[in-house]
Design a binder for these strands. Structure first.
Length: 809
DNA sequence: TCCGAATTAATTTTT
DNA sequence: TTAATTCGGA
């Protein structure tokens, strides 16, 4: 039976601890912690598991615990390892530690699993059997490498989908399975095994590691090398892992490895916030922690300091439906707060407009845009929001999506630097060899690759051979001058030139910059701007990094994720729910609460109850990010791939406690034009016949005045008043839809892409008759000659047709 | 070999 | 819907 947690509340020893801390220049306000928090901070030796509910102050507990270890227990900072989920979290923790522990706080090993493993691998490169200057491959690089393996093995990339193969390889590494150990029961998996083996050979030859390798190599090497294992298992006297519910098998192995001797392992997490099952994470890691470590103490942090009571009750109502979870109930002393708003929208554009309107209202009430965030289930939802926000002049930032470092020009420049750092990096070399064009075409490269394959050598050495032996005729010369450029760069690098300087040389010598400047298009300008930004970040790195080497910069860049992108300025934040983990905002709007969308069901909808539970946890994470105001939106009509799709409201909405909600709906999209043409909108539509604005719902005075009073009205959540939902008239002064705004026209609703005068009087929602398909509903109007329409015909589906073939019904 | 047109594929979630 | 890829013609 595990020992019970200490009860610091009734134990005055923490006061002594505080005095001692102060003596070492570490002052901890331990009396501001609640009892379980204090128990976690002061926990002495041995394993500890902390179940930390959302907003329960866990980051504070971790940092205090570390400070306490250093200040009170005299643990050398570099013997403490703290693993965080994101680089951003690591940065914040480092900062807090530096503040709490002025001497030495910076020496604590803080980072993500990946960053820490990269550090370990470089430090113990010899023992681990990797190159010290290895390059890290991101997913795209990995994909490119797999493609090459596929073509070398003469395999069909249709049959062996690179994406799928990558998934299998990554999964194997997650489970610490080598190519030899990989099961190959059938012909397909036998081939995959061969691909995996070849891939590993190629990666090794190229001196590169993929994301999965970083962890996998450490674990494998430690298990094969006694000295490394001894070193790693004794080096850290205290290990702390945050977000433990989202760790996978290798990560667990690694954690066990580094703490096996000292056994001072603290894991912190919340099984209700486990949202990475698809990535191999296993909630059992935290749920069964006491099985792996029978002497582990357990602390539960259940007091929430973040949200209102109503928000918390709502969030709890959703997760508590899950059957498989550690029982716990978050509670708060915070105020009741206003009701959670559930808003039905006309379609996804209307939803976005409501979001923009909400943001504006926030600003109107004197608050900052940084206080609000919009969450969605999938990235694809962001576009509509961006359009609406741009149309109403609300500045915003999207977290995730296309990373800065993924832009083509940025990748090009980085590829040059990667080759400078490691000439054997084949993927990078192939990327740049003809960028900008040097007349080294596919035919020549095929020959070079053939030489490389024959010798089992890197592309770079094959190129050297080809250049010297004149095997490629005229191309040999071009190749030679390309190699000379690389050589020049390498010389400069070895004489101490930093990344920024090298980057400038690349842009100069390759004419990359010049060709962009000559190309006088907005795209080229944007690219130049990105390159400048990249060089700026290199300069900053050279100024601030502890080890400002090229390798270190490249590593930083590839391990940087989209969630790490720092926000600056007064901007509204848009992100997926996954990216929102660990964050909080006073006002949160969660969009797309519909069946199929949230809970999300992909095309291959296998009815996995585990998946539903994860969706529910995802909703829980989303809701608990909100401090004061939570707005949940949904729409029965949403365009997916440009095709309209009907959905019913999310089951999660129906699981919320009615007493804590207020149900509303916006005005219909393009209400003004509907009002002008009263016959339209209700007939011939593919859906339930409900007018979006007259959806039956619980009584709501505000709604009635907004909606029944005038068909053009919409409601928007009032942020100024506690629970209010004020009708803001938005008919006349309404921000026009993006397309109209862009043209600067007055607000007459034509649909997107529709040029005035050419639409023949067609409009969205209009009922039309077609000779063959009968009556249908116009989905969109396309201008041009001849004008075209997208029309949904019940029983026939959605058709694109020339407008002149239909008549108003 | 390069450009533009035409086709078709794509959507979870990310270290 | 758009983005990416393939294909065909110069």
């Amino acid at each position: 039976m595990p020992p019970r947690p200490p009860r610091p509340g009734s134990d005055p020893s923490w006061q002594a601890a505080e005095r001692a801390c102060t003596l070492r220049g570490v002052t901890l306000a331990l009396d501001t912690l609640n009892a379980p928090q204090r128990a976690a901070v002061l926990h002495a030796d041995g394993p500890l598991v902390v179940f930390a509910g959302a907003g329960s102050g866990k980051t504070r507990v971790i940092t205090y615990r570390i400070a306490h270890l250093i200040g009170e227990r005299g643990v050398p900072p570099w013997r403490i390892l703290a693993v965080t989920f994101t680089n951003k979290a690591a940065g914040e923790m480092r900062e807090r530690l530096a503040h709490l522990v002025p001497q030495g706080g910076r020496d604590v090993w803080v980072g993500t699993f990946h960053a820490i493993c990269a550090r370990i691998l470089r430090k113990y490169a010899d023992l681990a059997g990797v190159r010290k200057d290895f390059t890290i491959y991101d997913d795209a690089d990995q994909r490119a490498m797999i493609n090459r393996v596929l073509s070398d093995l003469k395999l069909d990339d249709k049959r062996y989908d690179p994406k799928k193969v990558a998934g299998l390889i990554n999964r194997a590494k997650q489970e610490v399975i080598s190519p030899e150990q990989m099961p190959s029961n059938d012909a397909y998996h036998e081939v995959v095994q061969r691909i995996y083996a070849t891939y590993e050979d190629r990666m090794r030859a190229a001196g590169t590691l993929d994301f999965g390798d970083l962890l996998y190599r450490v674990v494998v090497a430690a298990e094969q090398s006694k000295p490394l294992r001894d070193e790693l298992s004794t080096r850290f006297t205290n290990v702390m892992v945050d977000e433990f519910q989202d760790t996978n098998h290798v990560q667990l192995r690694l954690v066990k490895l580094v703490s096996e001797v000292t056994r001072n392992l603290t894991v912190v997490g919340d099984d209700d916030q486990a949202i990475y099952r698809w990535r191999g994470a296993d909630r059992r890691n935290i749920l069964d922690f006491q099985k792996s470590f029978p002497d582990a103490q357990l602390v539960k942090l259940e007091q929430n300091y973040r949200s209102t009571k109503r928000i918390l009750r709502s969030a709890h109502a959703v997760v508590s439906r899950n059957v498989d979870r550690e029982p716990k109930t978050l509670w708060t002393d915070n105020e009741e707060g206003g009701p959670v708003l559930v808003v039905k929208c006309g379609d996804e554009r209307d939803e976005a407009r409501l979001a923009a309107e909400t943001a504006k209202e926030l600003v109107r009430s004197g608050r900052s845009l940084t206080e609000m965030a919009i969450f969605y289930r999938i990235h694809a939802q962001s576009r509509v929001f961006e359009e609406a926000l741009r149309a109403s002049n609300v500045s915003y930032q999207v977290i995730g999506g296309v990373r800065f470092y993924d832009r083509a020009e940025v990748k090009d420049l980085l590829a040059y630097l990667r080759v400078v750092s490691n000439v054997d990096d084949d993927v990078s070399l192939l990327r740049i060899v003809n960028v900008p064009t040097r007349g080294i075409g596919k035919t020549s490269l095929d020959k070079v690759m053939e030489i490389a394959a024959r010798h089992g050598a890197s592309i770079w050495s094959a190129m050297n051979e080809a250049a010297q032996t004149n095997a490629l005729g005229a191309t040999s010369k071009k190749l030679a001058s390309f190699l000379a450029l690389l050589e020049k760069l390498r010389v400069r690098a070895s004489s101490g030139e930093g990344p920024a300087g090298l980057a400038r040389v690349v842009l100069e010598e390759t004419n990359y910059e010049k060709s962009l400047k000559d190309d006088d298009t907005p795209e080229a300008d944007a690219r130049l701007e990105n390159l400048r930004e990249l060089i700026g970040s290199m300069e900053e790195f050279e100024q601030e990094a502890e080890t400002p080497t090229l390798t270190a910069f490249l590593e930083l860049v590839t391990l940087q994720t989209s969630a790490d992108e720092a926000g600056s300025g007064d901007k509204l934040t848009l992100m997926t729910v996954h990216a929102a983990k660990g964050l909080e905002f006073p006002v949160v709007l969660v969009a797309g609460l519909e069946e199929q969308m949230f809970p999300y069901r992909g095309l291959d909808a296998d009815d996995d109850p585990e998946e539903l539970e994860e969706e529910r946890r995802l909703a829980y994470v989303a809701f608990t990010r909100a401090r004061e105001k939570l707005v949940l939106t949904w729409t029965p009509l949403r365009r997916v791939f440009g095709q309209p799709r009907m959905n019913s409201r999310s089951r999660f909405l129906d699981e919320l406690p009615k007493a804590d909600l207020r149900e509303l709906s916006t005005g219909t999209p393009r209400a003004a034009s509907f009002a002008d043409r009263p016959s339209a909108g209700s007939s011939g539509s593919g859906y339930d016949g409900d007018r979006p604005w007259s959806h039956p719902q619980q009584g709501n005075a505000a709604r009635s005045s907004a909606v029944r009073g005038r068909a053009t009205g919409t409601a928007s959540p009032s942020l100024a008043s506690g629970d209010g939902f004020r009708a803001s008239s938005y008919g006349g002064e309404r921000p026009p839809p993006a397309s109209t705004a862009a043209r600067g026209g007055s607000y007459v609703d034509h649909s997107e892409g529709d040029v005035a005068g050419e639409d023949g009087g067609f409009y969205i929602g209009m009922a039309v008759t077609h000779a063959k398909y009968g009556v249908g509903k116009v989905q969109s109007v396309h201008g041009g000659l001849p004008p075209k329409l997208t029309v949904a015909f019940p029983g026939w589906g959605v058709k694109q047709l020339v407008a002149s073939y239909v008549q108003p019904a």
